[in-house]
Design a protein around this nucleic acid. Structure first.
Length: 941
RNA sequence: GGGCGGGUAGCUCAGUGGUAGAGCGCUGGCCUUACAAGCCGGAUGUCGCAGGUUCAAAACCUGUCCCGCCUACCA
């Protein structure tokens, strides 16, 4: 790295150039590469990356995945693991097909005009041109997967795995074809799995009532429905067997008003709730899940009234050709004209909608492929119960168990063209053969055709953890990275929203095909929402592109993307409403940089289900990045760090203290990342670096290194510790902030044993950096900090200008404390801004006129911090302050006395709690006495 | 309807039995020569509500209200 290309440290941190440069460097040095080599003795660790959709472009969810997974993978890598982050892209069946169909639409064509083969060519062409843009964007975030191993779920080897899996399931009797009621999306024209149906709650609908006339006699039965058009497919009306209102009608028939058929009255205690509505239910077995079951119980006819596009077919009689919505109106009108309508009531209903198209899903009878789930689900539940896979946070275990406990068979076939075509061949006489390759006897000439359907996108996703490693072949990668023994670490990190879609299915298939769980831990995190807590969606215009946060963007540019086509003013209003803190930033986002974005995303605990993205928060962490930048500059330029000292063993307090604080930070950070509490690691790094290192240590360093400092003898200690801690801090933060840490780490003094990149580690460890806790140094420094803070507070409260210097005195009866304060007096002088070195005296001596006292309680006894106010502060202000103080203390005294007067407390509470309370009380009383004294002294101001 | 989670400072959230915390915001003072993207101070809470257990509850128990999310076929 030539120094010419590196940015000038004296300027504020500019992320973009730095980020691009280091990413290229990492790729060049093969930082991300994992090894399959059986001879490689390093322990293995793997994270299968949730493959983003090929149609996708980077959104905040991806940024969150990248951040958390990259932090984990870098941490393991730095600790010497053979760490594989397996990247990939998902072919995203429906989504991709829709995109390309829309493209065709603009050319005035449909996929049917092209034919299957041509259409698929177009999709592949599209994929080659615009698919996978996302992996470029992931690089911007600093993601470090082993790109050489990128898999696309439609790659030939993935297809082979899919076929293998399907055939094995079929051969084992777990994949079967059946005709039953399934969820059908008329827009996508395909079957859907239960999971792909979303229910929209609280839609305002109505309950329409109408009458069926009884056949052969007077009388009628009134039924209620939210979907009047389905009455065209009614093949029964059900009543409760015990309902006295209808006893006389049992076994009789009703006249269908539009169709030439009689509708039987059946009794069914399962379907019918006597108390609801009229107690009579119309039964449409072909278009309602309950009715379907009822139909099976009573052997009712199943009449499908819809075409695949949702229009009425021949069974719709006079209404044939109408779509569902218009048919509803027409049927109601026709019933009314026949005098059968019996009014409507408002009714709240939940609409099942297709996850992709948003169209209302229609239950249809259809022949599909199903995968048996129950056995696999039980195994998957057991694996978590056994602890073979741990779900973190644990609260999700219940949800996981609940879902798998009630799971239905998985409808895996889709009537699409884009996807893995089902490896089954249909013969001329209805025979079916399932095979890895077309069986030789199943020729087209002999009338055999391959099943036209493709598999649910999630089918290939479910094979991801082992298919990407070469399964069904026994590859070295599979042996090394699939966690067949508990020592092979493997984590699956993702949003909880795909726990069922993906995680549970991987668990089931992993156990089924590999006989062992696909990962040792499942790490679930929350969903990123806008600043007001709303889900990000195109409609709401609140989607933020992570790249705009990283590189900066004008709001006018952003809103063109959030609500394309909408008037700018409207889009801007929505955007600013969704992000109030952005609105306060003016007209644009500055370039926050990838590190700031990552750090922000890293600070949310996984228990946080909704992560509100506040641009203001990013700003705070951008400041932090800059703080690191400046602190490093100061260390290099001012402190003149040139040498690195391994295992420093300083004698002086400050150096001992910062090493101890650092070791504490190292322990917390390691514990945090290990337990998937990256937020704890990030917060501790932030706190340590800013508060301990910058606010205290670097300030103290200045006093040690000041010209003519009596502390000059500590200079070597202080420098050695700083070099050690600074280099270590950068490594500590690298998993969360890869770029700035690399940029700075390259410049700081470091041991010769370090490799070319900070990414190679080592990560600060419990054994090295984390072992040096120094409780004595921490205790001493705490006292010093408290004493200095006390003086500062007094100065501030009395509004003594920093330009003016005040006399300060420390008083203590403890020799140890006196010694300590004597040692740090010179530093304290600067930090408290006093004219002369603070004097050290015994408690109880005479106090100068106009002196205010603050007491710092320590284990070795109290330290009184005396600040002379004479000539600096006016008397009235001082007296008023004393009054306020007296009031506060009196209140505290009362409360404490009351507590101590309680017999129960004194007798039952642990001794140390009682002692503490007593100590507290005596301190309060002493403080009270000093205040009285101060009042007298104030008179002399 | 069932399940899960949450209600703590203005905001976003930590905090699972011992004197209420952080960041941001607010506020007073400082251009103290690394950083004003900064430094030194300060204020702020009936810890949703009501009971209970306990010497002691934000935390544990019961009830209740509100808010999310997941799930379900009330016609």
């Amino acid at each position: 790295m030539s120094s010419e290309s590196a940015p000038d440290l004296s300027k504020p941190y500019e992320p973009r150039e730095v980020e691009e440069r280091w990413y290229a460097f990492w790729e060049k040095h093969g930082v991300f590469e994992a090894s399959d080599d059986a001879a490689d003795a390093r322990p293995a660790y793997v994270i299968p990356m949730p493959p983003p959709n090929v149609t996708g472009s980077l959104h905040m969810g991806h940024a969150q995945r990248c951040t958390l997974e990259d932090a984990l993978i870098r941490w393991y890598r730095m600790r010497g693991y053979n760490a594989l982050w397996q990247p990939g892209i998902d072919h995203a069946g429906i989504a991709t097909q829709t995109v390309v169909e829309r493209q065709l639409q603009r050319e005035g064509k449909t996929r049917h005009d092209l034919g299957r083969a041509e259409f698929l060519k177009r999709v592949w062409q599209w994929k080659a041109e615009s698919g996978g843009r996302i992996s470029v964007q992931q690089r911007v975030l600093g993601a470090s997967p082993d790109w050489r191993r990128t898999k696309f779920t439609m790659d030939p080897d993935m297809s082979r795995a899919v076929k293998e899996a399907f055939v094995r399931l079929y051969e084992d009797g777990n994949m079967y074809r059946a005709t039953r009621l399934i969820n059908w999306c008329p827009t996508c024209q395909t079957a859907l799995s239960d999971l792909e149906v979303e229910s929209e709650e609280g839609a305002n609908g109505e309950l329409f009532e109408f009458a069926y006339k009884v056949d052969g006699e007077d009388g009628e039965i009134v039924v209620a429905t939210t979907r009047p058009e389905t009455m065209l497919g009614d093949t029964a009306v059900a009543v409760h067997p015990d309902d006295p209102r209808y006893t006389s009608l049992h076994g009789k028939f009703l006249i269908h008003p539009f169709m030439d058929r009689k509708v039987p009255i059946v009794t069914d205690a399962i379907l019918v709730d006597m108390k609801f509505g009229t107690g009579a239910v119309k039964v449409t077995p072909a278009h309602d899940f309950n009715d379907f079951a009822t139909g099976k119980r009573h052997k009712l006819q199943e009449i499908n009234i819809f075409n695949l596009d949702g229009t009425l077919n021949d069974e719709g009689g006079p209404f044939k050709g109408l779509d569902r919505k218009r048919a509803r109106t027409a049927v109601k009108k026709a019933l009314d004209e026949k005098g059968l309508a019996r009014g409507t009531k408002p009714h709240q209903l939940t609409l099942p909608r297709c996850q992709r198209s948003g169209d209302v899903v229609e239950p249809m009878i259809s022949t599909q492929w199903f995968c048996k789930m129950q056995g696999m689900a039980e195994a998957a539940i057991k694996a978590v119960k056994d602890g073979r896979t741990q779900i973190i946070p644990e609260e999700w275990v219940k949800t996981y168990d609940h879902f798998l406990g009630e799971i239905q068979d998985w409808c895996v076939s889709r009537q699409l063209w884009w996807g893995h075509q089902i490896p089954a061949w249909h013969g001329p006489n209805g025979e079916i053969k399932v095979a890895r390759e077309r069986p030789p006897e199943c020729t087209e000439e002999a009338g055999w055709t391959q099943d036209p359907d493709v598999l649910d996108t999630w089918f290939s996703s479910a094979l991801w953890p082992f298919a990407t490693l070469g399964w069904p072949d026994k590859t070295p990668a599979l042996a090394k990275f699939y966690p067949t023994n508990p020592k092979q670490l493997s984590d699956l990190e993702t949003g909880y929203d795909i726990l069922f879609f993906w995680v549970a299915r991987m668990m089931m298939f992993g156990l089924y095909f590999m006989k062992e769980v696909p990962f040792r831990r499942v790490l679930l995190s929350g969903l990123i929402v806008d600043e007001t807590g709303d889900k990000m969606s195109k409609v709401k215009g609140n989607v933020i592109d992570p790249l705009d946060l990283i590189h900066g963007a004008e709001f006018t540019e952003i809103v063109k993307k959030t609500l394309p086509g909408a008037p700018e003013a409207e889009a801007m209003t929505k955007f600013k409403k969704a992000y109030p803190s952005a609105a306060a930033m003016g007209g644009s986002f500055p370039a926050f940089g990838a590190d700031a974005l990552r750090f922000t995303l890293a600070t949310f605990p996984p228990s946080n289900k909704r992560i509100a993205l506040a641009p203001k928060r990013l700003e705070g962490y951008r400041h932090f990045v800059n703080k690191i930048w400046n602190a490093t500059r100061f260390s290099l330029d001012q402190v003149k760090l040139t040498a690195y000292v391994e295992n420093p063993a300083p004698k002086s307090l400050y150096a001992r203290w910062i090493l101890s604080r650092f070791s504490n930070a190292v322990r917390i950070a390691n514990g945090g990342i290990e337990g998937f509490r990256i937020d704890e690691a990030a917060n501790e790094a932030y706190r340590f670096f800013w508060n301990d290192l910058c606010d205290w240590y670097l300030e103290l360093t200045k006093t040690v290194l000041a010209e003519g400092s009596p502390l000059a003898g500590q200079a070597d200690d202080v420098r050695a510790a700083l070099a050690y801690v600074l280099e270590g801090s950068l490594r500590l933060m690298h998993p969360m902030m890869p770029y700035v840490t690399e940029e700075l780490w390259q410049r700081v003094p470091k041991p010769a044993s370090r490799k070319a990149s900070i990414a190679f580690g080592p990560y600060p460890s419990l054994e090295v950096e984390g072992k040096g806790g120094d409780p004595a140094a921490e205790a001493s420094m705490e006292i010093v900090q408290k004493a200095i803070s006390a003086a500062r507070t007094i100065r501030s409260e009395h509004e003594i200008s920093p330009a003016k210097f005040a006399p300060v005195e420390f008083r203590t009866d403890s020799d140890a404390l006196a010694k300590l304060l004597g040692e740090v007096a010179f530093s304290a002088k600067t930090l408290m801004r006093t004219t002369d070195l603070p004097t050290i005296a015994k408690v109880g001596g005479p106090r100068a006129a106009g002196t205010v006292v603050s007491v710092v309680a320590t284990d070795a006894g109290p330290i009184e911090v005396l600040v002379g106010l004479k000539g600096l502060v006016d008397k009235a202000t001082e007296l008023a302050r004393i009054e306020r103080e007296v009031k506060r203390i009196d209140k505290d005294i009362q409360a404490t006395e009351k507590k101590l007067s309680s017999k129960a407390f004194v007798e039952k509470a642990p001794k140390e709690v009682v002692d503490e309370a007593n100590a507290h009380l005596s301190q309060l009383k002493a403080a009270r006495a000093r205040l009285e004294e101060s009042r007298t002294l104030a008179d002399e101001l």
